[in-house]
């Protein structure tokens, strides 16, 4: 297998993997380029006959006039979508920065140093990974009502950090464990622990740290459960919460597909970047 060029079997396998990857995406994304009547046609069409960008104009608040003179009206939710993109970006960037700043030293400490109660503290972090968001929602909601954090970006940032910090700490511990044991050498040279961490470990672990930041961004960007309850119809609405209007309140497949496609762009750039670095982050 190794060192062999294309065999027919390999070609078939590549085709299967590509179909598996792209058919589910394509099937929904194509709605973004179709008209309402075409979406509703039965049997369903495989390819849009006259692809148009109406849905994209509409979700950003513009009417669209097709070649045949039909006018597609702007979506009533366009302001929510635009606010959603702004809020989601803002929240995800802050979450990525804070998570990285917190998680990198924490994971390092857990991976490389010995201290009392380490096992128990680690178990506490893993416990918080296991909590299903659905069961912590009501307590959070009750707490947030009292603190006035419902419908604020601060509130969403805090709640998202409770997801990202434990899970990314967990991921990074394995990564730090696999770095060469450089501390002893640094100690012999008389460097302080802080110096060793900041000047030797952090630069060595650069790719792992980047991956952690990126994963935190993705978690925040894709988070839906908390956002739906804590931010819907508020100033702080995020993109997934804003999109869900097209799914439930006023079903609008082409608008939903268009906003879904928009929401996929940042993760896709990130995934492209990530696959270059991911091999270096060894979970095990």
């Amino acid at each position: 297998m190794i060192g062999q060029r294309f065999s027919p079997w390999l070609l078939l396998a590549i085709a299967v993997v590509l179909l598996w990857t792209f058919v589910p995406m394509y099937w929904t994304v194509k709605y973004a380029f179709m008209t309402k009547t075409e979406v509703a046609r039965f049997p369903p069409v495989m390819f849009p006959h006259a692809p148009n960008l109406a849905a994209f104009y509409n979700i950003f608040g513009h009417d669209y006039t097709a070649a045949d003179g039909t006018v597609y009206r702007a979506s009533g939710q366009w302001s929510q979508i635009i606010a959603g993109i702004r809020n989601s970006l803002f929240i995800a960037v802050i979450v990525a920065i804070v998570t990285t700043l917190v998680v990198v030293p924490l994971a390092y400490v857990f991976a490389r140093l010995d201290f009392p109660h380490k096992g128990k503290l680690l178990a506490a972090i893993l416990l918080s990974v296991s909590l299903p968001p659905v069961s912590t929602l009501i307590p959070f909601y009750a707490l947030y009502v009292q603190l006035g954090l419902v419908g604020t970006r601060t509130g969403l940032i805090i709640v998202t950090l409770t997801i990202t910090i434990p899970i990314i700490t967990w991921m990074l511990i394995g990564f730090f464990r696999n770095l060469p044991p450089i501390e002893q050498l640094g100690r012999i040279d008389g460097f302080s622990r802080l110096y060793i961490f900041a000047r030797i470990i952090v630069p060595m672990a650069r790719s792992g740290i980047l991956v952690a930041a990126v994963i935190a961004f993705l978690f925040s960007w894709n988070e839906y459960v908390y956002a739906q309850v804590l931010s819907t119809a508020s100033q702080a609405v995020t993109l997934p919460a804003a999109m869900s209007g097209f799914l439930f309140q006023v079903p609008e497949p082409s608008h939903l597909a268009a906003s879904l496609l928009v929401s996929l762009l940042p993760p896709f750039f990130i995934a492209y970047f990530l696959q270059k670095h991911i091999a270096e982050l060894n979970l095990a």
């Binding site: 993997v17 590509l18 990857t21 792209f22 589910p24 995406m25 993705l218 960007w221 894709n222 988070e223 839906y224 997934p240 869900s244 879904l260 929401s263 996929l264 993760p267 896709f268 990130i270 995934a271 492209y272 990530l274 696959q275 991911i278």
Partner: peptide, 14 residues
């Protein structure tokens, strides 16, 4: 490889 990882970047919601 860059293409095949894309589904992972899609949210469970999407």
């Amino acid at each position: 490889r860059a293409l095949i990882i894309l589904p992972w970047a899609v949210s469970p919601y999407g």
